[in-house]
């Protein structure tokens, strides 16, 4: 992911408790709004979705609500780009082993939708080898 003239950045450590990510999500979304990302635009909705899914996955599936573990959130934004990295302290997972939730036979499966939504809304999504860190970027389209 390339260097860029970022207007705002933040780094936070979240506890692994239910809902711990929600205030940070709101803070990031407010920053984006101040940078011109309209709440009326699909991009804003998509970033909200990617934040919700990546942060709640890290707390729930990554750290398994273990209060001795934290989630590191690194975020950068400018009027036309958004960048996010979420790292948990769990064992990681292999994204390719997650069943495709959009396949007819998996429509009723419990998981995989968060990953599909992040991929659909973000311009680029990648995982580290261990599978405990997701990095994503969004280029503004509206």
């Amino acid at each position: 992911m390339s260097e860029h003239g970022w207007s705002w950045s933040a780094e936070k450590r979240l506890p692994s408790t239910k809902g711990a990510h929600i205030p940070l999500m709101e803070e990031i979304l407010q920053q984006l709004q101040q940078l011109g990302w309209s709440r009326e635009c699909r991009d804003h909705f998509g970033i909200e979705m990617a934040l919700e899914e990546s942060l709640s996955n890290a707390i729930r599936h990554g750290n398994c609500y273990d209060t001795s573990k934290h989630v590191l959130v690194e975020c950068k934004a400018s009027p036309d780009r958004f960048w996010l990295r979420v790292t948990d302290e769990g064992n990681g997972f292999k994204p390719k082993e997650v069943p495709d939730c959009t396949a007819d036979e998996n429509l009723e499966c419990p998981g995989g939708r968060g990953l599909a939504l992040m991929k659909a809304y973000m311009t680029h999504v990648e995982y580290n080898k261990r599978g405990n860190c997701v990095t994503m970027e969004k280029t503004r389209t509206c």
Partner: peptide, 15 residues
């Protein structure tokens, strides 16, 4: 529409 898109991406429009 934006919520419908969530259903469409996840193919829940079929379910």
């Amino acid at each position: 529409p934006e919520i419908y898109e969530v259903f469409a991406i996840t193919k829940l429009t079929k379910l």
